[in-house]
C-alpha cells in the first residue's frame, strides 16, 4: 500500500484518504446564465487523462481537510500534493 503525503499530517496510509475527482473545476461565475448543456458540462463532464492528473483528495480518517494532488493515472504514483488555495503546479 502506498503512502500519501497529506499537506497537514504528513505521509499516511492510502486507506485514510478519499478521492474527490478532478481538481480546478471552477464554479461558474453566473450559473443562472448557463444553458442546460453548459450546466451539464460543469456538473458531469471531467477529463479522463492518461498520465499526470490534478485531483482532489480528502484526508478523511485524519484531519478531514481537502487538498489537491498530481497523480500519474498510469502508475498510480503521487507526484505532488498541494493545498487547495495553491495554484496548480507546473509539471514537466
Amino acid at each position: 500500500m502506498q503512502l500519501i503525503a497529506c499537506p497537514w499530517c504528513g505521509p499516511r496510509e492510502e486507506v485514510e484518504f478519499t478521492y474527490g475527482g478532478q481538481a480546478h473545476v471552477p464554479y461558474p461565475d453566473d450559473p443562472a446564465a448557463l444553458s442546460d448543456e453548459q450546466w451539464a458540462h460543469y456538473v458531469f463532464f471531467r477529463d479522463n487523462t492518461k498520465g499526470r492528473f490534478a485531483e482532489r483528495w480528502n484526508h478523511s480518517a485524519g484531519c478531514r481537510r481537502w487538498f489537491n494532488a498530481v497523480r500519474d493515472t498510469t502508475s498510480y504514483r503521487f507526484q505532488r500534493v498541494y493545498r487547495v488555495d495553491d495554484p496548480k503546479p507546473v509539471t514537466p
Binding site: 499530517c9 499516511r12 496510509e13 486507506v15 485514510e16 480518517a61 485524519g62 484531519c63
Partner: peptide
C-alpha cells in the same frame, strides 16, 4: 498526536 485508524476504528 495523530488522527488515524487503529484496527478499523478511527
Amino acid at each position: 498526536s495523530a488522527q488515524t485508524t487503529l484496527g478499523q476504528a478511527g
